[in-house]
């Protein structure tokens, strides 16, 4: 299952809720969700811990738009929109954590 998160982890509990509920699989961070995968942010440790259980992806155009394209936490998998489509296609279902 693909879980899509689009909220900053610093203002919303959405990523937390996703991480504590989802059983595993792929997580894709888009829009303001991309702040979670930047080095030095307050939830970096939590994100790194989650990477043991999930494959964590980030939509690079959203990260680059926010001026943080060079701060990607190591091990997070960068994708473009074609990669996003591929993730949606390869998982049986996808849930947007709105």
């Amino acid at each position: 299952m693909l879980h899509i998160v689009n909220k900053s982890p610093l203002t919303s509990n959405t990523l937390d809720s996703c991480l504590s509920t989802a059983t595993g699989g792929d997580i894709l961070l888009i829009e303001d969700g991309v702040y979670a995968v930047t080095r030095g942010n307050a939830v970096e440790a939590k994100l790194r811990a989650a990477m043991g259980q999930f494959r964590v992806h980030v939509l690079m155009p959203d990260l680059e738009a926010r001026g943080l394209g060079d701060r990607l936490v190591e091990g997070v998998l960068p994708v473009d929109y074609a990669g996003f489509v591929e993730l949606a296609a390869s998982n049986k279902t996808c849930q947007s954590w709105l």
């Binding site: 299952m1 504590s20 509920t21 989802a22 059983t23 279902t93 996808c94 849930q95 709105l98």
Partner: peptide, 18 residues
């Protein structure tokens, strides 16, 4: 529980979240 909810999500064909 959270874990049971997660397992239930995995069984679905379509998930709509609001």
């Amino acid at each position: 529980s959270r874990a049971e909810m997660g397992a239930l999500m995995d069984e679905q064909d379509v998930v709509l979240s609001y």
